[in-house]
Simulated assay, not measured.
Amino acid sequence: MGLVAEFDITCEALPLVSVAKAVPEAQLDLKIQYNHGNWPLFITYVTGGEQQGLERAFESSVFVADYTLVGQAGETRQYQTVPATSLEETLGDAIDDLDGLRALATTDALIERIQVTPTGWIQAGWFADRDAFDAFREFWQENAGFRLRRLTRDGEPEAPGEGLTDRQQEALRTAYEMGYFEIPRTASLEDVAAELGITASSLSERLRRAQTHVIETTVASTWPPLPD
């Protein structure tokens, strides 16, 4: 049985970390499209934040050669970013063992989520066994920074709230403490958003994502199939 892990990688040289640092109010999630030369194409999902500030950060990033806004749904904008530099040029000054980094691509693992933070990446994914997970853990411990958030066996149910981002947890906790979920409500969406320093629409989407995740990891998995 495989393992499911989520962990922080502290390395400011990783792609798009400078963008996350420039727009800390936005959440950046990545998907990687391989087979595009030295660096794959990056699909960047940006939730919240001010669009002009984000695009200025793209333009000032040494990693980004070009970017294109390819879609938008609510507060989430989808960009295709084309790298300007190779693997060696991007990480060469920060990581000595580039061969070890390339070797991770051959590990029996599947990284399913990458969130960019102002200090590095949060990665979550599936690993075939403990050896596959240890390859990631040992590499990042030796070359940058590593902090394990959770490690479970594939198929084990997550505890409620596991897998939520820090911002989602903060939004849920603040909304709860201010009385947003009480009946009747003692705080409005705008009240909670003002407390967090974000727009009401950004808060609404953040709460929806958090609530969807909690439902999917608790009651949704126990429901019987719908009848045909």
Results as ranks from 00 to 15, higher is better:
Met1Thr: 12
Gly2Ile: 02
Val4Glu: 14
Ala5Pro: 02
Ala5Asn: 04
Asp8Ile: 08
Asp8Tyr: 14
Cys11Asn: 13
Glu12Cys: 04
Glu12Met: 03
Pro15Tyr: 01
Leu16Tyr: 04
Val17Met: 06
Val17Arg: 01
Val17Trp: 01
Ser18Ala: 14
Ser18Tyr: 05
Val19Cys: 11
Ala20Phe: 00
Val23Pro: 00
Ala26Ser: 04
Gln27Asn: 10
Leu28Gln: 00
Leu28Ala: 01
Leu30Lys: 04
Leu30Tyr: 03
Leu30Arg: 02
Lys31Leu: 10
Ile32Gly: 06
Ile32Cys: 08
Ile32Glu: 08
Gln33Trp: 13
Gln33His: 14
Tyr34Arg: 15
Asn35His: 15
Gly37Asn: 08
Gly37Ser: 09
Leu41Asn: 09
Leu41Val: 13
Phe42Pro: 06
Phe42Gln: 08
Tyr45Ala: 14
Thr47Asn: 06
Gly49Ile: 00
Glu50Val: 07
Leu54Gln: 03
Glu59Tyr: 08
Glu59Arg: 15
Glu59Thr: 13
Ser61Gln: 05
Phe63Thr: 02
Val64Arg: 05
Val64Asp: 02
Ala65Met: 09
Gly71Gln: 08
Gln72His: 13
Ala73Leu: 13
Thr76Val: 10
Arg77Phe: 08
Arg77Tyr: 05
Gln80His: 11
Thr81Ala: 13
Val82Glu: 09
Pro83Gln: 05
Ser86Pro: 12
Ser86Val: 07
Leu87Thr: 03
Leu87Cys: 06
Glu88Gln: 14
Leu91Glu: 04
Leu91Ile: 05
Gly92Phe: 12
Asp93Ile: 08
Asp93Ala: 15
Asp96Ile: 11
Asp97Tyr: 10
Gly100Asn: 11
Ile111Asn: 02
Arg113Trp: 00
Ile114Tyr: 00
Gln115Lys: 08
Gln115Asp: 06
Thr117Ala: 02
Gly120Asn: 00
Trp121Ser: 01
Ile122Asn: 02
Gly125Phe: 04
Trp126Gly: 04
Asp129Tyr: 01
Asp131Tyr: 11
Phe133Tyr: 15
Asp134Trp: 03
Asp134Lys: 09
Ala135Phe: 04
Glu138Ser: 15
Glu138Ala: 12
Ala144Val: 01
Phe146Glu: 01
Leu148Cys: 05
Arg149Tyr: 04
Arg150Leu: 15
Arg150Val: 07
Arg150Asn: 12
Asp154Glu: 15
Asp154Gln: 14
Gly155Leu: 04
Gly155Asn: 02
Gly155His: 00
Gly155Asp: 05
Pro160Cys: 12
Leu164Val: 11
Leu164Pro: 07
Thr165Cys: 06
Asp166Asn: 12
Arg167Lys: 15
Gln168Tyr: 10
Gln169Gly: 14
Gln169Pro: 00
Ala171Val: 10
Leu172His: 10
Met178Ser: 11
Thr186Gln: 11
Leu189Thr: 05
Leu189Lys: 01
Ala193Asn: 02
Ala193Leu: 02
Ala194Pro: 00
Gly197Thr: 00
Ile198Gly: 03
Ala200Thr: 09
Ser201Gln: 10
Ser201Ile: 08
Leu203Ile: 03
Ser204Trp: 08
Glu205Ala: 13
Arg206Ala: 05
Arg206His: 05
Leu207Lys: 07
Leu207Trp: 04
Leu207Arg: 06
Arg209Ile: 06
Arg209Val: 09
Ala210Pro: 02
Ala210Gln: 02
Thr212Glu: 14
His213Pro: 07
Val214Phe: 06
Val214Asn: 10
Ile215Lys: 07
Thr218Glu: 07
Val219His: 09
Ala220Met: 12
Ser221Ala: 14
Pro224Ala: 08
Leu226Ala: 15
Pro227Gln: 06
Pro227Val: 02
Pro227Phe: 01
Asp228Thr: 03
